[in-house]
Design a protein around this nucleic acid. Sequence first.
DNA 1: GAGTCGTAGATTTTT
DNA 2: TCTACGACTC
Length: 803
Amino acid sequence: MEILSSLNPQQRKAVEQTEGALLVLAGAGSGKTRVITLRIAYLIAEKNVPPYNILAVTFTNKAAGEMRERVKTLLQGQNLQSAPLISTFHSLCVRILRQDIEHLQEGYTKSFTIYDTSDSQKVIKACIKDLGMDEKQLSPRVVQSAISSSKNQGEDFEMYASKVEYTDERHAAIARAFKMYEERLNNANALDFDDLLIKTVRLLRASNEVREKYNNKFKYILVDEYQDTNPLQLALITFLTEKQQNICVVGDDAQSIYGFRQADIRNILEFEQHYPNANVILLEQNYRSTQTILDVADAIIKNNQNRKDKKLWTNNDTGEKIFYYQAFDADNEGRFVASKIEEHLRNNPKDKIAILYRTNAQSRVFEESLRRLRIEYNIVGGFSFYERAEVKDVIAYLKLALNPFDDIALLRVINTPPRGLGKTSLDELAFRAKDFGTSLWETLAVITDEKYEQPRNLTPRALEALRGFKKIIEKLSAQVSEAAQTDRVVSEVVIAAIEDTGYSKMLREENSDESEARLENLQELVNAAVDYDKQEADGLRDFIDHSALSSDTDKYDRNASVTMMTVHAAKGLEFPIVFLVGLEDGVFPHARSINDAKELEEERRLAYVAITRAEKILYVTHAMRRRVYGEEMAAEPSQFLNEMPLEMIHDLSRGSSWLSFAKSSSVKNNKHAAKVLRGEAETEKPRSTYAGKTYNSTDAIAEFFKMKKSSQESEVSGQEANSKPLSGFEKLKAAGSDQSKIQNPKSKIEVGLVPGSHVRHAKYGKGLVLRREGTGDNVKLTISFPGFGQKKLIEKFANLEQA
DNA sequence: GAGTCGTAGATTTTT
DNA sequence: TCTACGACTC
Ligand SMILES: Nc1ncnc2c1ncn2[C@@H]1O[C@H](COP(=O)(O)OP(=O)(O)OP(=O)(O)O)[C@@H](O)[C@H]1O
């Protein structure tokens, strides 16, 4: 088969060995995804496996879409009766449950609703309230994440509750909320994201018939990014491969970045225990990146204790050095990136460039700076189209029409547009519902009935409004079931949900820029439905499912020259030019992970993923100041920068930068200046804890600041594209020194502690002042103490000495 | 019941 | 900085 000629011998082996269990464990860019893709084509074209017997599972919709495309291209010209199923875990589960959930006998029907994260959050809030607790005592966020992580480990609320110590009030409260949450979802015939997996696993476990059915259907199973599977997903795969064991998984333990979703790399490392006859193939040649990029990625990942050493080599050139830029602040970082992108596109308009960041919130600055230069970009993730309020509203109408038990959908739309149904009426409705033990919809039907004899506790106006609402939904339901029978015209029902509900009327009457934009978004929704009608014609339900599962903007345009996304979203992709931005302690690695060795290692793997996305050119940038919650904060260069081999980095910053300092302090016989900077950490007991390492670059940075102070004039005027008359650094210095001299004469230190000053603290020892705010007795100082991190202290009480 | 205003609190990462 | 929710007014 000629397509195999594009493979190296190991890859080829992995493709040709179609029977039995196979693990392909290999580093970044070694062709794992290519193996999976070709394997699917090979099974179909060479082994004559019917496509419907093949299941390939990926992690994101984006990855599934890409793979579908590639397989399609490979199989062009073949006359196929069916297509292989290439889907995410979640879509696969929806597919199975839509067919067979009734076998589970838990009261769920095929018309179940999917609750997204915000829907579940609403349920949780209601539960907390109904348990007589305050959101401040028990935050919905905490409950939600507890429930989710418990579920992803395969637990139900009973298992969760059984683990709670009876003295542990807090967890007991979570357990109660968990229980109530489960009951409410069940009553609403609703499943959350995690339930999709849980229920499928439970279904496969409980029903021999169903298990048998899918074992017979999916004879060949392939899983990409296997290192990111969690115990539930493992269970799912295990059940699906009970009969046949034709399973091929590929992955790289160094790229495991979904620990927060309970992903467990033991799944991949212990694959041979799960499938004792498994073969293991290692791929060691990287086809993607330059040697320099691989060296840098490798240098970083080597700092992880918990890892499996893998070889990775490349025939590619050494390539360019890594480009580094220290920005003055986030805005300046954005300008730098945009201007570099402009330069690249001027030289080669076809360049494909990615901006990768740790959190979605960072995208804004880059959007603005690109827009300023009129550079087109597209952005993956963040708030998706389907998460917009107006879109969710319309979808909620449709969800309610499909599943009237969906209380969340009902509450969302019952008074949108305003129908004169306020808190009082809705409280009454909810109260009755609880009393009857039924859904809001059923309750509504009962109490609006002409023949209902009990006192209603509703104003005549409210009663009429409820009746009107009921009619609207009934009409919509009728249209929906009609459409379901004709198996088409999703778009018509969508239009009905926009028009006949009064929704568009409300927006037209509002007549603002805002409402204008919303109407446009709804038009987009109609367009999506029209497209959908043309392509799949799988009915309204499928359309709605799709909207729930694609919070990830999977229609990213691979032809666009600039794409921005989080590092997580970039997994599996590659770009000739990559900008990895915001490399600061607290941002990347994220502040939430910095104090936990395990989580810090995950951040480091994330850095590894980010760097290995680059094919030819990698830029790394960081800002010295960044706004956090609207507050300007001093930012330290990321420890991951410190872990890079500095001689491979080329400094593009104007003036002196952290890098130039780090390089200059290199001891002759030492390979990496970074090691020098790490100093004591190296001689310490080898990284038994990371607490001390977190700020171990502080000394370097402290000295850097000191240097900076003396050369401030040149540094500031050298800052590129800094249009403000006074740089922040100057302002900071000015504000700091003036205030401390004039308004704080009582201060122990007459000179005043300006940012950059060294101080000594009784408990934390030597530290460096990063920031000063407030006046008089209220002066607060942010000080970085090596080994203790940043502390915010009141100058008056801190008892600081100048060091 | 609807709309306005003020303030506390929040951000990882994805399905 | 932005948001989401609660108090307050009409
Ligand atoms: N044998 C080969 N010859 C030439 N190019 C190859 C070969 N195998 C893979 N490639 C190319 O290498 C690049 C990386 O491949 P692929 O995305 O499959 O790697 P991967 O192992 O899945 O990477 P990651 O783990 O980083 O997602 C792709 O551009 C692919 O086309």
